[in-house]
Design a protein around this nucleic acid. Structure first.
Length: 279
DNA sequence: GCGATTTGACCCTT
DNA sequence: AAGGGTCAAATCGC
């Protein structure tokens, strides 16, 4: 079987799996565990969402691979490269110079937003590739792509825009999921749509420990003028501060002690804690 | 020196 | 034609 045919079959199978996972998600809230109590197991929905995300990532990767195949190989096989809901990678054989400004608007790609008092570190490394003043906006919109876009083909991008002066509020819009393997700290990954997440920032003396291994939270420099926030002590991404993000499925019920028991932090001076749940 | 950021130009979508 | 997303040369900073 040719590669292209295999890819098409694989994509078809994953799409089916995706549909099944969606169906499962639909019926989950109706699951009756004790005859008299109707509720969803706390971990079940989270699990289904992870499965869905895994499918999405794989689909995105496969579609990317497919679109990067030689054109003659695709035309030979009469495949139907339909991917309305996924980013379409341009196959045009343009020169690097001619590719300027070539893009596909992200409206059809999976996107989600997050409003935070500071631009949050989500555990991935981003590279800024542009900024723009948009119509009816008081502040610049900043454009970031995954640092590993070219080396690993990761298509994740995000936009950060300040939407409010006082109190400061930043809107981060994510497009696509990361397919890169390079995570600064997997422990610190914040699922952008995860409501059970907590943002904490520390100064640079922080050292974290998990399962007996020490690690340092992610440190990433980003656009200075947008990041510096003088109203709060959090200075995300500057040279002497870092931001750590802890995510826990049980944070709604837990207190800070519980939270810190999963990630032991040594010699830390918390300079700011963003606590959306009022622990 | 090298990687990240800045910023004006380019060009696609609406 | 306007607006918005991306590119890439110039610049910055470690």
């Amino acid at each position: 079987m040719e590669n292209q045919e295999l890819l098409t079959k694989a994509i078809g199978e994953i799409k089916r799996g995706c549909e099944f996972a969606h169906e499962l998600l639909e019926i989950l809230p109706k699951w009756n565990i004790n005859e008299d109590a109707i509720h969803t197991p706390p971990f079940a929905e989270d699990l289904v969402r992870k499965i869905l995300r895994s499918f999405t990532d794989t689909l995105m990767f496969l579609n990317t691979t497919k679109s990067e195949m030689p054109e003659e190989e695709i035309s030979d096989k009469k495949v139907t490269p339909k991917s309305e809901d996924l980013e379409e990678i341009s196959c045009k054989s343009l020169t690097t110079k001619n590719r300027r400004g070539t893009y596909k608007r992200k409206r059809t790609i999976q996107a989600w937003e997050k409003d935070t008092p500071t631009p949050t570190d989500d555990g991935y490394t981003w590279r800024k590739y542009g900024q723009k003043m948009t119509l009816n906006a008081k502040y610049l919109r900043n454009y970031y792509r995954c640092t590993h876009k070219y080396e690993q083909g990761c298509q994740a991008i995000k936009q950060i825009q300040r939407i409010q002066e006082k109190p400061p509020l930043y809107r981060t819009t994510y497009y696509g999921h990361h397919t890169c393997k390079t995570l600064l700290n997997p422990e610190l990954i914040l699922e952008p749509s995860d409501p059970n997440s907590t943002l904490i920032s520390f100064n640079d003396t922080i050292q974290c420990k998990k399962d007996g291994h020490s690690f340092f939270p992610s440190i990433k420099r980003e656009a200075k003028e947008e990041i510096l926030d003088h109203d709060h002590q959090v200075i995300f991404g500057s040279s002497n501060h870092v931001t750590a993000v802890l995510s826990s499925t049980s944070t709604m019920e837990s207190n800070w002690a519980d939270l810190f028991s999963c990630v032991t932090i040594e010699s830390v001076e918390l300079d700011h804690v963003f606590d959306p749940f009022g622990f």
